[in-house]
Structure formats: structure tokens, C-alpha cells
Design a protein around this nucleic acid. Structure first.
Lengths: 206, 206
DNA sequence: TAGATTGTTAATCGATTAACAATC
DNA sequence: TAGATTGTTAATCGATTAACAATC
């Protein structure tokens, strides 16, 4: 049985990867746990500890080769490949996601977008023709898609999630401001700007 | 000196509040730590422990009055008032945010939106006239705005953050996929869909 | 060699859970 | 009263940090 890695460690790896790719774009070759930690506001010890869960990627006295480490982290995260992603909901958020070109360099490719509004179906969003939600399950199944983003009104989100699960989707990123219930084995992440704002108001002066 | 509350506790309160408001909309009057925990996938003990940091809000044998508890949590989080928020960047994301009507019921009001593209300035987005970024600092200062959302390209995000800090902004929600450096006393939260997706790919079968 | 930085161990710190008296 | 559920304490569990030998 492989060693169980804490989820909190996994959750930090994407930010490490993002910082490494940025350094790489800046033309840098080598970094250290200390430098990376300063960029991210994390202790150097924590970065070394996190990475040590997966192997030895650095050299004493020198640090880490940025490109090598980035590739290793990609491999750990399973993003040294391209994941097809479906978008459900072609409102403002769904359309913004469909048109966002930051996904391709991070391991993701939008494959299709769905909506249930007759007047939207068949029109285009971000270069995709919006498909009918009614065909969602079969299209996602046929394409073997495992990841989806939900951008429908809160009231519809659970129903959409249920259908996605039936279609074999295993990872859902939801922009709907509700808690989704999904079976074990399906992952959900939520993005709700109000939640993020409310996490900061506590600290603001009245 | 007031008791120092762990940030991880604060970060859970907005999800408690969201669930409570949802229950309230469902017409429910009373709930328990157990029921709330089941909805959120959190232990009942943790919810009681978190709430106990701020006072006693429940009744033994009965549980919590939903409306009362929601109001208490709002008060704790400082969202029993309206916070004005500025949006910087009128691309797809900025426009989606400007048009999003989920903020008002959560304690926030979009007040203005900025962009630096001459062809966008003066046009409208989500009911707002897009203002020139050049006037950002003075406008935000004059309006006394303390919260902002950044929706500009990654390359511009740090520069915008610096200006917002100068303008007196104390809480920034950034959609740009970079780490922002801000002085102590300024809070930053990041939303980057690729990061969220990458937190799930680790668990997916190849 | 001297200086720097890793990977790892042990110590510390903090968060979660279990359990239960209090009490509605 | 009996049953339910809180608020809180103590125990457990897990995560972070400090420190350092190894070594580039």
C-alpha cells in the first residue's frame, strides 16, 4: 500500500508548481526552499517536508533545478498530461470560463459547454457551440470526460452534480454558492467569491 | 487583549453562514450541530467548538435557532453591514463579477469597475460605467473603499495590488494566477480555477 | 576548503475529536 | 421525567518548525 499523503500537502503543490513555472518564465534555472517559501509566504522547512513525501528533488548546497522540479510536481499531480473538462452553464461565469485561455498551460482543455436555455443552445461561447443539457450525460460519457465545472444557478447545482456523477465525472469545480453532496470517490471544490470576501471582513475595521 | 481566534476557525464561518441562510430559506427554524455538520461534511464537535469561541448561541436539548445564529455569525464576520467593493479589470471575469447579483445578500455591493483599455473606458458592464484605471487611486480613496477584486492579466496584477494598497484597500480578492505581495495589514485571497482543478487531479485515475 | 542547502528526525505547536456534565 | 443537545474539558491526532548531519 502506498504511503498516504495528507490532503493539505497535496493542496499546496499546485501553488508550488505555479511559482516554479513563473520563475522558469523569468529565465531562472535554480531556486531554494527558502526563496520559494518567501515568494509564497510559507516556511522553507514546510516546502522541503512536503516535497520529501514524494522523493528527493534537490541538491545540498545548490537547491532545486526549477524545470526539473516543476516537471516532477506535474507528474505527482497528474498534470503532465491534458485533462478534458466540461462546463455546465453558459451564463456570465460559464462563458468567462469557456473563453479563459489560462487552462491549456496548466494541464486542462475545455471540451464542451452546456446550457438548458433553448435560446442559448446552438449559439457560441468562447469558441464552443453551446450544447443542450439534455444530452449532457451521454456526451460526457461518450467523451470519457472526468472533470467538470458547474456554473449554473444555486437551485440547479445539485441536480447538475447528480447528472455529472452519473456521467462518470470524478472531479467537480463548482461556482454555485451551495454545498454539493456527492458520493465517495467524487471530489468537489467550490469557488464562491462571497465566501472569500467574508473570510476577510472579520479582520477589517468596522 | 481579546482572545486570538485561529484563522482556520474564521475561514469556516462563512460556510456555516451560507448553510444557515439556506436552511432559513427552506423555512427551517431550528438546527443542531449534528445536522449542520452533516450538510457541510464537518464534525458536530468542530462546529460547536468553533462557535464556542464567540459565545453561547444554542440551547441544550434543542439546538440552534437558525435565524438567530445566522445573525450572530454575520455580526462576528462583520457582514451585518454592507461593504463597498471595487473591481479592477473589465475583461470576461471582471464583467461577470460586475453582473453577479449574489453579492448583495451576502454583505457586499459593487461600487465601481476600472479598466485601462481606452476602448472600454466609458462603456458599461453589469450596469456600471467602466472607469479609467488612471483615476483608480483617487476614486477609491475618495469613496473610502476597503475591498477590491482584481481581474486583470497576471502580468498587471502586482502593479494593481500596489495601487490598491496605496488607495487604502485592506482586503483583495484576486483572480490573477500569481502570488501577490502586500504589506502586513492587507489581506489577500486568491481564486485560480487551475489551482482548484490541480488539487483534484492527484486523486484521479490516470 | 568553506559555505550553502538539502532531507529527515525530534520537538513543538495547534487542531480535531471524544466524552460528559449541565440543562433545556 | 426521559431524551436530546449544548458548551467545554481532556485526550488524541496531525501538522509545522527547529535543528542538524550529510553532502554538494
Amino acid at each position: 500500500m502506498p504511503k498516504q499523503i495528507p490532503d493539505i500537502v497535496i493542496s499546496r503543490l499546485p501553488t508550488y508548481l505555479r511559482a516554479l513555472l513563473q520563475m522558469s518564465q523569468e529565465g531562472r534555472q535554480v531556486t531554494s526552499s527558502q526563496e520559494l517559501g518567501e515568494r509564497l509566504g510559507i516556511s522553507a522547512a514546510q516546502i522541503r517536508k512536503d516535497l520529501s513525501q514524494f522523493g528527493e528533488f534537490g541538491k545540498q548546497g545548490t537547491g532545486y533545478n526549477i524545470e526539473f522540479l516543476a516537471n516532477q510536481v506535474k507528474e505527482i499531480l497528474n498534470v503532465n498530461r491534458v485533462w478534458d473538462v466540461a462546463i455546465v452553464g453558459a451564463g456570465d461565469i460559464g462563458r468567462a470560463l469557456a473563453g479563459y485561455n489560462g487552462f491549456s498551460e496548466r494541464g486542462f482543455r475545455i471540451k464542451m459547454i452546456f446550457d438548458n436555455k433553448p435560446e442559448k443552445i446552438g449559439t457560441s461561447a468562447g469558441g464552443f457551440v453551446i450544447k443542450d443539457s439534455k444530452t449532457m450525460k451521454e456526451e460526457i460519457l461518450a467523451a470519457g470526460i472526468k472533470m467538470a465545472m458547474i456554473a449554473v444557478p444555486a437551485t440547479h447545482a445539485q441536480g447538475v452534480a447528480d447528472q455529472l456523477v452519473e456521467a462518470g465525472v470524478k472531479a467537480i469545480l463548482s461556482y454555485a454558492p451551495v454545498n454539493l453532496n456527492v458520493p465517495a470517490g467524487v471530489r468537489v471544490q467550490n469557488i464562491d467569491p462571497s465566501i472569500h470576501l467574508q473570510r476577510m471582513t472579520y479582520y477589517l475595521e468596522q
